[in-house]
Design a protein around this nucleic acid. Structure first.
Length: 816
RNA sequence: GCCAGAGUGGUGGAACGGUAUACACGGCGGAUUCAAAAUCCGCUGCCUUCGGGCUUAGGGGUUCAAAUCCCCUCUCUGGUACCA
């Protein structure tokens, strides 16, 4: 029979669908594996990155099914988000129609790729049922104080009249109309993720070994914990008068309390409340006010180009020396870190140094190197010895930090503090295609939660998407409602949620049995059984945001009593990008490969085999058309040579000692491949080497013609390869083995037993020749033999050391 | 700048301190064919005076033995970016 990928694959896909082959069992006494790949946004078509992602998870899922596990391998669609609205603006489609059409198409693609997803648990996060439960959780979080509303600075496009996400701001301008964006103070909802900063950081330790180190480091840096000293700087009398006694002091934070005696000025962020007060009350000249306003309106990228600042004409008193210190406003001071104000030590901080140089401010060194002199052309930021530092003179700067903080605390003028880079997560979007935030604004009651029995607060279908303003805000009737608390006329919140909220808990929803989907988001029992995710597979681009948010939600759900563990994903595999001509595949570069076309030409098995064979999963994968062709040829050969198999329902029993050399070798290669497969599936995930092992075994099988050896070989190889190239393996297995071999296979150690072994002989570590010796040859005679064979290289030399590594090599160390 | 990770044939990549270049792609040669495709078989790191010599970005070290461990330099990729 000819290998016809298309018809063969279609047949098995129908078979699997008909037999519900991939639905998880509801029997919770079985051992489970939860295999999850990051779900896609329904952009319209799968790209090669998706194919790689789902091939990887499918390979794990199929392997564990073979091993007898109860496997959950679900898929869904992260289906809210801006691209649906952009498509609406561009072609007048409705976001909902566009989204669900795309989902239908992509489901078809999943099927033709042979992915073993659970069909019955498929979901889209834009489904009203999903929104319903999500809004329920939002309400829970609001009640717990984990969701709050406050004014915050947002990216605002004055032309499109909308808030933009940070990712939509390109070089300080709106990505769509190129208008420079401005920061606008608006009410926004925030998740109090900072309440979990320490736990999110500390629990990274629990993930060591299971998660790539790189991702752990990225999260650690993102959380950005730093310890230091926080203290108040008090204004002198003149400044107090100038500020109408409105402010007595401001707060600063430093990680370098050891440099405290070197403070020569202080700087406030342009957005600092004292600066704002001075502007609003005309306490500064018009030129200065204009200058500060300009500073505030400069994009963060431009702000980084050059440091600039203005003397505010105020002074504070140094907390230890009592010296007067000038107060400046400076563009490099960030409002959203610490208190938005810094003490400046130009002698020991590069930024402070640059600024001091530019404006001719004092530079007072207080730390010197233990040996030699510090370079006065730049800041000395290393550890050293304190001087000009009062009672702390002579101390090691690093060690003095503890003493100085203690001094501040004992005198009640400051305290030890921890700061984080991590900020609360702003989740409201002035967008249509998202989950509505289920709150109501009532003149009398304030912000009121919608009653849970009224959920979901669903999106209206009849909207006009123009790209300007918020369609929910502009809708004639949708937002008008009555207050859930007092019943008076009220207005719905028109903000929708960031789509990262949906992806923060979808893995929990997949644990729910479909028969209860309407009733509950999931049950404690289901979560307890299926979580944590045993293998989570996806792109490194989600290393921070999605993975951090999902960890945060897990901890919140734990504290809400929905589950009882701390971390959702036990093992994380981050796949590399798919490249063509050395660049990431993208439509704009025109270097994409369409999965559908590939499947049409070669079939899904070829696509899957190539993707797993071309590179290890974590590495980038360079597309190569002729290597794809090579994968196809291998499958074809694998299929064609199956004609050497004898039909059997059990693995053949073979008398190993009666076999020829080639036959023995073939068996050895087959079992080597099996050994390697176990290792790859369980520890290394380097499917490329597993496939290479199978190819070697195939090559070895082909050098002999014992049909029992062929049958045994195929029994094992088609079992190993089923997770990779399932269609052709099911075909072979059903034709010859009644599908009995698609289970876990046992390694037969007897095939590795040999009576002689070849050893490499090295002189001074350089390999010169080889010898063949009996397996139990004593060390002395091995050395004797090696000397004989290597005589040529030993002439006139003295052997000073002899090393024998059993079954590997002999190394003779010579002199002279 | 800082933090990760990586540098192995013409190419993708093997080698968890022990025979470097497995497996594949590409190339070359042969068989088959009227011819081609397909298929099958063989060769293929570099240099060579055909004895051999040299090779894992470069330099040093540890070791009987280093692609692998340590130090320095260079290059590339990713993340992050005035975080006080």
């Amino acid at each position: 029979m000819e290998y016809n990928a298309q018809s063969l694959e279609k047949e098995w896909q129908e078979y699997w669908a008909k037999n519900r082959s991939f639905e998880p069992d509801e029997d919770f006494t079985k051992e489970k594996k939860y295999i999850l790949s990051m779900f896609p946004f329904p952009s319209g078509r799968l790209h090669m990155g998706h194919v790689r992602n789902y091939t990887l998870s499918d390979t794990f899922a199929r392997y564990y099914r073979q091993q007898g596990f109860n496997v959950l391998h679900p898929i869904g669609f992260d289906s809210f988000g801006m691209p649906a609205e952009n498509a609406a603006i561009k072609n007048g489609s409705h976001p909902k129609g566009w989204t669900y059409d795309n989902i239908d198409y992509m489901k078809g693609e999943f099927k033709t790729l042979g992915f073993s997803f659970s069909k019955e648990r498929e979901l889209a996060t834009s489904d009203e049922l999903y929104t319903k439960f999500e809004q329920g959780f939002i309400i829970d979080m609001f009640e717990k104080g984990l969701l709050y509303r406050k004014k915050g600075l947002l990216n605002w496009c004055p032309h499109d009249q909308t808030v933009l996400a940070n990712e939509q701001v390109v070089d300080g301008c709106c990505w769509r109309c190129d208008t420079p964006i401005v920061k606008k103070d608006m009410n926004q909802y925030y998740f109090k993720i900072t309440q979990y900063s320490d736990e999110l950081l500390d629990d990274l330790k629990k993930l060591e070994g299971g998660w790539p180190k790189q991702v752990l480091t990225m999260q650690e840096n993102w959380i950005g914990k730093s310890n230091g000293l926080e203290f108040d700087l008090f204004f002198d009398d003149m400044s107090l008068t100038k500020l109408n006694n409105k402010f007595k002091s401001f707060d600063v934070f430093t990680t370098r309390p050891d440099t405290i005696y070197g403070v020569s000025y202080t700087a406030l962020a342009p957005e600092h409340e004292i600066v704002t007060y001075m502007i609003e009350n005309n306490l500064l000249s018009n030129e200065v006010i204009a200058e500060i306003k300009k500073m505030k309106n400069t994009s963060s990228i431009d702000r980084q180009k050059e440091k600039s600042g203005i003397d505010l004409g105020l002074h504070v008193v140094h907390p230890l020396t009592g010296k007067k210190i000038p107060v400046w406003v400076a563009n490099f001071v960030l409002m959203d870190y610490g208190s938005g104000a810094v003490m400046a030590v130009p002698a020991h901080d590069e930024r402070d140094f640059d600024f001091a140089k530019k404006y001719n401010l004092e530079i007072n060194a207080v730390i010197k190197p233990f040996e030699g002199e510090a370079d006065s052309d730049k800041a000395y930021t290393e550890v050293g010895e304190l001087f000009n530092s009062g009672e702390f003179d002579g101390m090691n700067s690093k060690k003095s930090q503890y003493n100085i903080i203690k001094h501040f605390e004992e005198n009640n003028i400051g305290k030890k503090t921890t700061n984080y880079k991590l900020k609360d997560w702003g989740v409201s979007r002035q967008r249509y295609w998202g989950a509505p935030i289920p709150f109501v604004h009532c003149d009398d009651c304030g912000i009121v939660m919608e009653k849970k029995e009224n959920l979901p607060v669903a999106l209206p279908d009849d909207v006009e998407i123009t790209g300007e303003g918020n369609p929910l805000e502009n809708h004639p009737t949708w937002k008008h409602c009555s207050c859930p608390s007092c019943g008076k006329d009220a207005v719905r919140e028109t903000d929708t949620m960031d789509t990262f909220v949906e992806s923060s808990w979808y893995f929990l929803r997949f644990c729910a049995s479909p028969e209860n989907w309407e009733k509950e988001a999931f049950s404690a029992e289901q979560i307890k059984y299926w979580m944590g995710v045993d293998h989570y597979i996806g792109g490194i681009e989600h290393a921070i945001l999605h993975l951090l948010y999902a960890r945060f939600f897990t901890k919140v759900f734990r504290d809400l009593g929905y589950l009882d563990f701390d971390e959702p994903f036990d093992k994380l595999l981050t796949q590399g990008m798919v490249l063509k001509d050395g660049a990431k595949m993208s439509k704009s570069k025109g270097n994409t490969v369409d999965p559908d076309a590939l499947i049409e030409k070669y079939g899904a098995d070829t696509a899957r085999l190539f993707i797993l064979f071309a590179a290890p999963p974590t590495q980038e994968l360079e597309w190569n058309d002729s290597a794809v062709e090579g994968a196809y040829k291998f499958i074809k050969r694998f299929f064609d040579r199956s004609s050497n198999i004898l039909k059997t329902d059990t693995i053949p029993t073979i008398e190993h000692s009666s076999l020829s050399k080639d036959e023995k070798f073939a068996r050895k290669k087959v079992y080597e491949a099996l050994k390697r497969a176990d290792e790859v599936y369980n520890e290394r995930y380097t499917f490329n080497t597993m496939i290479a092992g199978v190819m070697e075994a195939m090559n070895a099988l082909n050098t002999q013609d014992n049909s029992d050896v062929w049958s045994e070989g195929y029994w094992i190889l088609s079992s190993i390869m089923e997770p990779v190239i399932p269609h052709v393996c099911w075909q072979i297995s059903s034709e010859y083995f009644s599908l009995n071999n698609l289970t876990s296979q046992r390694v037969l150690e007897e095939v590795f037993v040999e009576d002689s072994v070849t050893l490499g002989v090295s002189i001074n570590g350089k390999r010169r020749c080889e010898i063949e010796v009996a397996i139990d040859e004593p060390k002395d005679s091995i050395i004797e033999l090696a000397k004989e064979k290597a005589e040529k290289w030993l002439e006139g030399k003295t052997i000073v050391k002899e090393i024998v590594v059993p079954k590997k090599l002999v190394n003779l160390v010579v002199k002279g």
